[in-house]
């Protein structure tokens, strides 16, 4: 069976926003992203992948990662313009779907994966974190992440055996296009989108969380420290914050534990409708995205219809159980 191609989306803009000033977030320079791409490709090829489609970006991350790499595999950019914005990721994800990529490796944060899922809701993903405070992608060694992607692409491991479908928050703004978040959609008492990141707890009004993770950093942690909802649970969480609430100390950005005034908190059933009303700004996965004018409404609900996220550790465990990396007598690995 021919291996499916692997998609590579490396977001050049992740890991560089204002949270390096207002919090203590790490800087991910693009040289490091190049190295990560290189390691992921080498891991994937070792596990049997031989074709890759990648997102072209103005920083040439993948092109430069390929220089002198010397692997026997085909690499092709998808036909997406290099605008240097999130549109590139969305457009590339759509093209990778057409090209039959399975899976797609992303380098970025929650926002990068969200941009990909906007075009391909149930995209099969190996999501490597190079963002700021991420819940969706994981910090992991790219060599191994690439190997997991290669095992799935080559058909040695079935996607269904190692991937779980993620939840999403559907956001429908009155008079606007439908949008989504992978982790959190939050109404803020802010007039403008501005520098995008969210780091001021007093601005939080209503949080709709697909996942409330106690061991995360960011808005999901607020719910996580109140009433955890894991990725596996078929539920979401609704939190109202604001003046007069009981204070909860939560890590809303890297290194930034802040008191957040909590008014109420309850679980949401999948599909249960929540409404936001303007004025305010809606942040999706931690970035201010949509301005709601006075009286303008938005409908939100949590559903399980998102990306299929590959569990890298589980994939490698299965590969070990099946002896897929044992070199066969005639050379090569069985994974190939």
């Amino acid at each position: 069976m021919a291996a499916a191609p692997i998609g590579i989306i490396a977001n050049p803009a992740s890991g560089k926003d204002i949270r390096r000033l207002v919090a203590h977030a790490s800087v991910f320079d693009n040289q490091e992203k190049r190295s990560i791409v290189r390691r992921a490709i080498l891991g994937a090829v070792a596990a049997g992948a031989d074709r890759f489609f990648f997102m072209p970006d103005p920083h040439l991350i993948v092109e430069q990662a390929l220089e002198g790499l010397g692997v026997e595999a085909a690499f092709e950019p998808v036909d997406s313009p290099r605008t240097g914005s999130a549109i590139d990721t969305t457009r590339s994800a759509a093209l990778m779907r057409e090209a039959g990529c399975a899976p797609v490796i992303t380098l970025g944060g929650d926002g990068t994966n969200r941009a990909a899922a906007k075009a391909w809701r149930d995209i099969p993903l190996v999501a490597i974190s190079t963002g700021t405070n991420n819940v969706f992608p994981r910090m992991m060694e790219a060599t191994i992440a690439g190997a997991a992607a290669g095992l799935v692409a080559s058909g040695a491991i079935a996607l269904d055996d190692v991937a779980q479908q993620a939840k999403t928050v559907h956001v429908r703004v009155e008079g606007g296009p439908e949008d989504l978040a992978l982790i959190d959609a939050v109404l803020l008492d802010e007039p403008f989108v501005g520098a995008k990141a969210v780091w001021q707890p007093t601005r939080l009004r209503t949080l709709v969380l697909a996942r409330a993770e106690p061991a995360a950093v960011g808005l999901s942690a607020i719910g996580g420290l109140l009433a955890p909802v894991s990725a596996r649970e078929d539920a979401g969480l609704l939190v109202h914050a604001g003046v007069g609430g009981d204070e909860l100390l939560a890590p809303i950005a890297p290194g930034l534990f802040e008191p957040v005034p909590i008014v109420s908190c309850r679980r949401l059933a999948l599909g249960e409708a929540v409404e936001f009303e303007g004025p305010g700004v809606i942040a999706l996965d931690g970035e201010r995205e949509v301005t709601l004018h006075r009286g303008q409404r938005a409908q939100l609900s949590v559903l399980r219809d998102g990306p299929f996220v590959i569990d890298v550790a589980r994939t490698l465990s299965l590969a070990a159980c099946r002896g897929l990396f044992r070199l066969s007598p005639n050379g090569g690995t069985d994974a190939r």
Binding site: K16, D17, I18, D29, N30, Q31, V193
Partner: peptide
């Protein structure tokens, strides 16, 4: 490099990128 901000950590200071049209 594409982001001049990438140079900042090398000197021991934070560097960030912002949309200069906004």
């Amino acid at each position: 490099i594409h982001d001049v901000a990438d140079r900042a950590p090398g000197y021991g200071m934070p560097g960030i990128v912002v949309d200069g049209m906004d």
